[in-house]
């Protein structure tokens, strides 16, 4: 996969969870990126989340919805 693809994947809100304690772990794509790629993924996520929030009826980004799903499982 190209660096651009890795950056896009790492910029998503999906994070694997540690089977032992349920904590969110680093995305495998993030682990494959160099420092510049990781910074780019951070910036891509920071630009995307306000857009996601503006598109959501409750004003929540995918990060917020991922966390809230853990607080109030469906």
């Amino acid at each position: 996969m190209s660096d651009d693809d890795l950056i896009e994947e790492a910029a998503s809100a999906f994070r694997p969870r540690d089977p032992r304690d349920g904590r969110a772990r680093p995305h495998p794509a993030w682990l494959d990126l160099d420092d510049a790629g990781r910074q780019a993924a951070f910036d891509a996520a920071a630009r995307a989340r306000p857009l996601e929030a503006a598109l959501d009826p409750a004003g929540l980004s995918t990060t917020a919805r991922a966390v809230l799903a853990r607080i109030r499982p469906r």
Partner: peptide, 29 residues
């Protein structure tokens, strides 16, 4: 949820200095 809607951007921005060292999305969640 309403609190998170407002708090997420400043919390994320605060982690920017570590963006190359830790996966800030996982830390933020």
């Amino acid at each position: 949820a309403r609190w998170v809607a407002g708090a997420e951007p400043p919390l994320r921005a605060s982690l920017r200095p570590l963006a190359a060292r830790v996966d800030c999305e996982a830390v933020l969640q």
